[in-house]
């Protein structure tokens, strides 16, 4: 996989095109890139002592969690199906989605792409990082920075996103909302 430059190039081009659809606010086309069974999930990060920290002495090791990313059954920033993504896009078309009126001006930077074999021959596991810059109204600015793990699936000769798990590297989100997509 790492030795297949054509495939890697194809995946990169797919992800860059996806990013451009978002930046051009072509959300209906963007939602079309997902399979019907997609889980689109994003969580932030906790602020925890590592187990070996000398700042505490642990009383009950069974209560100790090493992973600072939220578990999948905990509270996520986004936990969507294809259907709820479509509802979110439909909401933007109502003329009353105030968080996006005036709309955000976004620039999605996608990098650190790694392509690995997926669960079967039709699928790939793809790692990437993102920096999303948002400018809005007069002088509002936000950065959303994090990592993605995608499952890409070949459907009728086209790549589709069959899974997207994202980690946003903030504990307290510095943006007032998450009204954009990643």
């Amino acid at each position: 996989m790492r030795n297949d430059p054509d495939l890697i190039r194809e995946v990169e081009q797919f992800l860059y095109r996806e990013a451009r659809l978002l930046d051009e606010r072509r959300f209906h086309e963007w939602v079309g890139l997902f399979t019907d069974d997609v889980r689109y999930w994003m969580a932030g990060r906790s602020n925890l002592y590592p187990k070996h920290s000398k700042a505490i002495s642990i009383l009950d090791p069974s209560r100790y969690v090493e992973d600072d990313t939220a578990l999948e059954d905990e509270l996520a920033l986004l936990d969507e199906t294809k259907e709820t993504l479509m509802s979110r896009v439909a909401r933007l078309d109502t003329g009353m989605a105030w968080a996006e009126d005036p709309p955000s001006r976004t620039r999605h930077m996608i990098s650190n792409i790694e392509v690995e074999p997926g669960a079967d021959e039709n699928e790939l596991k793809v790692y990437s990082n993102f920096i999303v810059y948002r400018s809005r109204a007069g002088s509002e600015e936000d950065f959303y920075v994090g990592a993605r793990q995608d499952v890409l699936r070949r459907v009728d000769g086209e790549w589709k996103i069959a899974g997207r798990k994202m980690t946003l590297d903030q504990n307290v989100l510095s943006a007032k909302n998450v009204s954009i997509f990643f």
Binding site: L77, L78, S87, A97, W98, L173, N177, S179
Partner: peptide, 25 residues
């Protein structure tokens, strides 16, 4: 419990379809 968790993410959270419109105001 799972359905309520999801409703929380989708309705009242930074990305919540209700809540995100409040912050601007």
């Amino acid at each position: 419990k799972e359905a309520i968790r999801l409703a929380g993410v989708r309705g009242f959270s930074p990305s919540g379809s209700f809540e995100q419109d409040d912050m601007d105001n």
